[in-house]
Design a protein around this nucleic acid. Sequence first.
DNA 1: AATATTTCCGTGTACGAACACGAAAATACT
DNA 2: AGTATTTTCGTGTTCGTACACGGAAATATT
Lengths: 349, 349
Amino acid sequence: MSKVRIKDIAEIANVSIGTVDRVIHNRGEVSQETRERIQKLLKEHSYKPDILASSLALKRQINLAVVMPRLVNEHAFWKLPLSGINKALEELSHYKISIKTYYFDQFNTDDFVHRVKNFPYNNIHGILFAPVFQEESIAFLRRCEKEKVPVVLFNSLLDDPYVKSFVGQDAYHSGYVAAKLINYGIEPKRDVAIINLSARKEHYAHIISREKGFRSYFEEHSGRLNHLLTIDLHSVDDQKLHSRLNEICSNYDLAGIFVTNSRVYKVAGFLAARGSMNVRLVGYDLLPESIDYLKRDYIDFLISQKPEEQSFRGLVSLFNLVAFNREPDEKQLLPIDIITRENLRYYKQ
Amino acid sequence: MSKVRIKDIAEIANVSIGTVDRVIHNRGEVSQETRERIQKLLKEHSYKPDILASSLALKRQINLAVVMPRLVNEHAFWKLPLSGINKALEELSHYKISIKTYYFDQFNTDDFVHRVKNFPYNNIHGILFAPVFQEESIAFLRRCEKEKVPVVLFNSLLDDPYVKSFVGQDAYHSGYVAAKLINYGIEPKRDVAIINLSARKEHYAHIISREKGFRSYFEEHSGRLNHLLTIDLHSVDDQKLHSRLNEICSNYDLAGIFVTNSRVYKVAGFLAARGSMNVRLVGYDLLPESIDYLKRDYIDFLISQKPEEQSFRGLVSLFNLVAFNREPDEKQLLPIDIITRENLRYYKQ
DNA sequence: AATATTTCCGTGTACGAACACGAAAATACT
DNA sequence: AGTATTTTCGTGTTCGTACACGGAAATATT
C-alpha cells in the first residue's frame, strides 16, 4: 500500500528511471514493446506522481494567457477576476510562469475577432477564456485546437468538446435560487419583475439561463406565473432607467425584483431615490456599489458568482494541465452562495 | 525580487547551509554571535522556505490526535467531522503522519477527565480538540501547555491564550443570519420561537451565542421582541417533544421557528406529522434527516457549520504548525453558508 | 602538556521527479 | 565489411530543504 515511485516501477521492469520517465511523459524514444510493458505496470501499481517532487523538478517555462472582456466604463464586474489572476500568479510563483491578459471589447465582435487573429499561439501553452460572442468564440476554439493550445473557460459556458474545463456557476440554478428567495419573502398575488440590464442580452447565454431558472421555479411552485414580467433595458442611462422603472412601479403591484446580473445596484439606486423599502431585490455579484446597497437593506440578497475564484481555479487547472498533464474536471461548478447583509463579511474578497 | 534560498543566505553570511538550517530550526549548536547575524540576514532578505522542497525533505514522523465527542445514539452531528479527518489524512499522505482519534462522552464530565488523564502526551505532537466542558477543557489545555503539546480547537471556542488556532463559525453571527432569514419570510406581529433541543444547554457556549445573535437581530430591527419566545427542551423523547410543541402551537401564533442546533429535523418531523407547512423553519447542519426535510420544504434554510471543513482545516493547520512551524491564524472563521433546497447540491459533502 | 569534553560548524546524502546528455544497440547504407 | 544513421536506453545532475554525521576549534580537566 506504500506509494510506488518511478524507481520502483523501473526496478520491476528491469529498465532505468529515465525510460519510465519517457513513457510517462510520452517523450518517445522507447520501443513499442517496453513502452507497453511499462504502461501496464504503471496501471497495475496505480502509479501517481509525487506532486511535491514533480513541482520541485519542473524546469520548463510556462506561458498562459487570459482572454476576457476589457474593463469598460461601468461594467465593473470584470475587475473582479483580476484579483483571482493575481492570486494564482502568487500561488504559482514557485514555477517559471507568465500570465498575460488579452482584453477585447465585449460590445464589439470585430474587435474580438481581430485580437484573436494576431494571437501568439506558438508562444502560449494554455488559454483561460471568458467567452462572450457565441459563434466567434467557437471559431476561436477551432483555431486553438488546430494550434494545439488547450483552453479552459470561465464565467460563461460554451458547449464544445475541445474545452478542457469550465469553471463557473450553473446559471439556471442560480436563477432558481433567486426565485426561491423572492418567493419566500413576499405575499402571494403580488407582482415580480425580472429585469435584464444588459446592453445586448442575446450575447449572454447565462443571462437567459438565469431567467429561465427563475421562471421555472414559479412554474413549479405557487401559481404566480401571471404575476411575472420580464423587462429588458438596454440603455445604460440612469435617467431613462428611472423613468422606465417609475412607470412600471405605478402599473404593477411590485413586491419583488430580480436583476439578472451585477447591475442590480442600478435598480437599488432607483429604489433608494424613490424611498421604497418594501420591494424585495435580488441580484448578482459583490460589486462595491451593490455591497453598499446591501448594507443599507435596499438589496436583500446577492448571489455571488465568485469571479475571483473562477479565474483562480481556472488558471490553476490550466497550469496543472499543461505542466503536469493533470486533466481537470470537465465542469467545476462553484456553489451558489447566498449573501445577505448579515453574512457578507465572510464572503468579501 | 527573486526568491532567496538557504544557500544564498549561507553564502552571504559566509557559513554553510547546515548552519543556516540550524538557526532556522532552532536546533542550537550555533554560537550566539553567528545566530544573530544569520537571523538578521534572514529577515533582511525576507527568507521564506520553499514549501515544496521542505515537504519533500521532511523525514520526521508526526503523530497528531483528535479529541472529540463520541458518536452516541442520535446526535449524528459528530459523524461529520470524521470525513474531514479522512480527507486531511489523504491530503497529508505524502508525509509520515498518523492521526489517532480519542472520543469522550459529551454528557459525562468524568469520562472526559478520565480519558484526558491517561493521554500519551509524549508520543503526540499536536492535538485537535472539540471542547465541550468549559472548566475541564481549560484544565486539559493547561496540561497540554505543561507538556508542550500545541492545541488547535474546532467547533466550539475556548478563550485561552494557549490555543494556537480556532477553526469554526462565529456562533453569534450565525444566529443573526438565521434571524434575518426568518424575519424576511414572515409577516409582522406573528410569533417566533427559539428552540433549544440540547440535553444540557449550559454545556454549549455556542448555542447560547446563537440565541443571543438571533435575539439581537430583532432588537435592532422590527419590534418583534415581544413576539419572541425561547423554549428549552432537554428531553430527547419524541412523544414529549410533540406534545410540548403542540401545546405551544395552540398558545401562540407561530410563524417561524429557529432551532439552535442540528436537531432541527426533530421539529421538522413534528411539523410534517402535523401537516403545517406555513411555519418558517431554520436550523443548523446538513444531517441526512435534515436534508430530507429541507427537500420536502419543511425546513426552509439550513446554516452549515461545515464540520468536515473544520476538522480538515484544523488538522492541516496543526500539521503545518508542528511540521514546519508555520503559525496558523488565531481564528479561522468559516463563512456562514445559507443552504436551501435549491442550492443544496453544491454544498453536500 | 597531554588528553578529554564541549561547542560550533561543514559535508554529504536523501527526498522523488524532470530532463539533458551521451552511450550502446539496432538498423540502414555504401 | 565498414561506416553512417537512427532507435533505444542508462547515467548523472538539478530543484531547495532536512537532517545525520563527523571533524575542527575552543575550552576544560588531569
